[in-house]
């Protein structure tokens, strides 16, 4: 039965990928990409990777779609025809792809028991994490404690992406950006009344859910990455329906910038505190007298840092894309 569901989901994914390749209408491509994200999330649920599934649903079907929609508003809806023969690119892709497939031939099969990672690391995590870290969700234990340094790297990647977008596109502090809610809000008020009402009801629940995922990450699926994305999508929803200026008045872009840096600093700071207490970087056992309580405090703080940075970086990217488009329009007129 599970095989049947897997085959159907994977063939849907393949069909959608082929449709994305063939389409020229970028709007349709983005919608298909959103469906692709949702289907891969369902696939991850079927293979019991619930944490990954939540992330994929929040990124692939949620924030990614929104960011890409704003990007197409900026860049135009239709794909332009090829300016040169794609043969060279095709050859490069083909060679790289076949090398990757060739490389994967050496890897052990999926779920193959005697493979090295199932022999040593896996059994250690599964058998010892409860006594070493004391967090029921092993994924969180691995992500935030055993592999804390890797996660710090991932968070830095997201932060760097936000900084790069700001460096390239930032126009957040233009003179006319603080002129009140403006005509945009009035138009939205007149045209989108029912949607605004429903969204107003839903936003608190979305935020509540985000906080649930954030603080329940030690016990169930979830954590900082997912919570940050869900919270960011709530704010983006608000900005889309109540006008970007209203959203900027509610929480100013400066706050997002500070929060984005604060998350990384919190994460690194926890590591430095552990270092100063005479342990390894990001070894949380020394944060409290009881090592297990120390681990728990460390994981909560680190997840909080992740949540802050992911949340504010996503919103900064969205705001920068949107403002860029507005400025382009102003430039045309």
């Amino acid at each position: 039965m599970e095989l049947f569901v897997n085959v159907i989901l994977l063939s849907f994914l393949l069909a959608i990928a082929l449709a994305i390749v063939r389409m020229k209408d970028l709007f349709a491509v983005i919608m298909l990409a959103g469906i692709y994200g949702l289907l891969s999330a369902s696939f991850f649920v079927v293979v019991d990777a619930v944490d990954v599934a939540i992330t994929e649903a929040a990124v692939g079907a949620g924030v990614f779609t929104l960011l890409m929609l704003v990007a197409t508003v900026m860049a135009g809806r239709y794909e332009q025809g090829a300016r040169h023969k794609p043969l060279l690119a095709l050859a490069v892709v083909f060679i790289t792809g076949s090398l990757l497939i060739y490389g994967s031939l050496d890897m052990p099969a999926f779920g193959y028991g005697p493979a090295p990672d199932h022999q040593h690391v896996d059994s250690h995590y599964i058998n010892e994490s409860m006594s070493e870290v004391g967090v029921p969700n092993i994924v969180t234990a691995v992500l935030a404690s055993y592999r804390g340094f890797d996660t710090l790297g991932e968070l830095l990647v997201i932060f760097t992406a936000g900084v790069a977008v700001m460096a390239l596109l930032s126009t957040l502090y233009d003179s006319h950006s603080n002129l009140g809610t403006g005509p945009e809000n009035k138009w939205l008020y007149e045209q989108q009344m029912p949607i605004r009402l429903v969204v107003k009801i839903l936003i608190p629940f979305i935020m509540l859910f985000a906080f649930y995922i954030q603080f329940h990450g030690d016990y169930g699926p979830g954590g900082g990455f997912q919570a940050g994305l869900i919270l960011a999508s709530a704010i983006i929803l608000y900005a889309m329906l109540f006008g970007i200026r209203t959203a900027k008045q509610v929480i100013s872009p400066r706050f997002y910038q500070c929060l984005s840096a604060f998350g990384i600093l919190l994460y690194g700071g926890v590591g430095v505190v552990a270092l100063l207490n005479g342990e390894h970087f990001l070894d949380y056992s020394v944060l409290f007298t009881d090592p297990l309580a120390g681990q728990h405090v460390g994981i909560v703080l680190v997840e909080l840092g992740i949540g802050c940075t992911v949340f504010s970086t996503m919103i900064l990217i969205f705001l920068n894309f949107y403002e860029r488009k507005n400025n382009q329009l102003d430039g045309c007129q």
Binding site: Q191, Q192, P194, I195, V198, V199, I201, L202, F205
Partner: peptide, 20 residues
């Protein structure tokens, strides 16, 4: 409850966008 809120709103938004 969420589906009952979201589904009709999404349909409304689609129809409105098409009309617009």
């Amino acid at each position: 409850l969420m589906t009952l809120f979201i589904n009709p709103t999404a349909s409304y938004a689609l129809a409105k966008a098409a009309m617009y």
